[in-house]
């Protein structure tokens, strides 16, 4: 960090004077050590499971834990281009992707559970995997499903988050996209061991007709775009670089960086 500007910025660090050394006798550490190491996996079927879901339920929020060191061992049939894109949920999958997200509301008396309904806004198929994005007033969920071992059964993993304001309050410009989610999910698939996937989705402006995302290996994958939403996922813990190229209605192209929106 030899740049004078970077050195000057370093001196502005608001946490520079913060002291908070950890000791082996900290009560917070003791509390963690008294919890179970392996949380029950949150899954509708026996196999794929969102590793972080147990913690998310406990905290009342959803967490997708970055796991850049996992090795993808699943998703062999995944394709760079989705074979189907629709806003509807496949009939066989109805009821598998939860139509309601549940949240702990610390301010509510009694049982502080708030339910936020969500509905499918985009479904895409890549190989054996169906990926569904659902949205509600101020919450979203993502649902990845593959055919289970038993006839007619699905293995489903889900992730959800609640936002501080309604989803429709902030929409992208016609030639831009808004990113709600860009993160890594670790999961297991039977005896195949742990794998990881990176998913991203959000809203697409009315002039955006296609989105191509740059993958970690330098190749590209085509995101699904439908009804003002876009979505993509790829095997691997750091599969998506965050760089994308939009194709607009007039045929022009525009490079963007996908960044999850934040409130200030």
């Amino acid at each position: 960090m030899h740049s004078p500007v970077m050195k000057a910025v370093a001196e502005l660090d608001p946490a520079r004077g913060l002291r908070s050394p950890g000791t082996p006798h900290d009560a917070a550490l003791e509390a963690i050590l008294h919890t179970r190491r392996r949380v029950p996996l949150h899954t509708r079927a026996a196999r794929p499971a969102l590793v972080s879901a147990g913690l998310a339920v406990a905290a009342g929020v959803a967490i997708v834990v970055a796991s850049p060191w996992s090795t993808p061992t699943a998703f062999a049939t995944w394709t760079r281009v989705p074979s189907q894109v629709t806003s509807a949920l496949p009939a066989g999958l109805a009821g598998e992707c939860a139509p309601v997200t549940r949240w702990v509301d610390d301010d509510a008396p009694g049982l502080p559970i708030v339910e936020v309904p969500v509905r499918p806004v985009l479904t895409e198929v890549r190989g054996d995997y169906t990926y569904v994005v659902q949205a509600g007033e101020d919450a979203w969920s993502e649902c990845l499903a593959t055919v289970g071992a038993a006839p007619g059964a699905w293995d489903v993993v889900e992730n959800a988050a609640r936002l501080p304001e309604p989803l429709d309050e902030d929409l992208p410009a016609a030639d831009d996209v808004l990113t709600y989610q860009l993160g890594t999910t670790s999961w297991t698939s039977g005896a195949a061991g742990a794998g990881a996937l990176t998913s991203a989705f959000g809203r697409a402006g009315s002039d955006v007709t296609a989105i191509e995302v740059i993958l970690e290996d330098g190749a590209t994958a085509q995101a699904s775009v439908d009804g003002g939403w876009w979505a993509v996922w790829a095997p691997g813990a750091e599969a998506l670089t965050g760089e994308a190229r939009l194709t607009l209605r007039d045929g022009s192209r525009r490079d963007v960086t996908l960044e999850v929106r934040t409130t200030h």
């Binding site: 502005l12 520079r16 929020v61 967490i63 988050a161 936002l163 501080p164 934040t262």
Partner: peptide, 27 residues
């Protein structure tokens, strides 16, 4: 990710550096 989740869930994001102006800094 924990921060981002709490931000999205609770809307208590503090943009990096928003508190800088109150810090006594010598450059």
């Amino acid at each position: 990710n924990v921060v981002a989740t709490r931000t999205r869930s609770e809307g208590r994001w503090r943009a990096l550096g928003v508190r800088m102006a109150r810090q006594p800094v010598e450059v």
